[in-house]
Design a protein around this nucleic acid. Sequence first.
DNA 1: TATAAGATTTACT
DNA 2: GTAAATCTTATAT
Length: 196
Amino acid sequence: MAKLKQSYYLNSDVVFLARDLIGKTLCSHINGIHTCGIITETEAYAGVIDKASHAYGGRRTNRTETMFSKGGVSYVYLCYGIHRLFNIVTNTYNIPHAILVRGIFPTKGLPEIMKRRGHGFSDTLCIGPGKVSQALGIDLNHNNLSLTGKEIWLQDDQVVVPEKDIQDGPRIGVDYAGEDAKLHYRFWTTRYDLFK
DNA sequence: TATAAGATTTACT
DNA sequence: GTAAATCTTATAT
């Protein structure tokens, strides 16, 4: 296994990274439980110029502060008062780019994942941003954590997803963002057979 | 100080 | 298909 280095997250092209993350492995080691999953779906949020981003126009609050950090940390926040959404902060200090992880394919600790989710296995067990966090045991305490640390990290398991099997389209749940809602900043694959 | 809306999921009809 | 759960932030009084 090869843990992704911090330099990987400093890339200034957040859309490129969102696509590149498809097929990478997201891991957590929380409360002594080790779980991993291959990323199957992401969305890019391009900071101050992106109406769908919390940081649009340079908005800076206690919540968005994390996104202004240097790339390579986690951004976890509460959505609808219930769900914890896990993001990967990219680019350099003061550039609030982030990538939302919307789906994973479980590869390690499946029993623990099912227990945390409270459901048996299904194709959609970990598909959906709130479900990903729940499956990996991520909560608000894991905001602003280094992604090269011991609790949460990403690694490259040399899984190759062919270009043609990565699809793109408009982001979900951001209709309020006007023209920016139409941008193809969402990437996903359905080739789960590659990960087995 | 108050109100509306949100990067969602789940259960029920 | 519709609604409920539930809380932070932003905008307005």
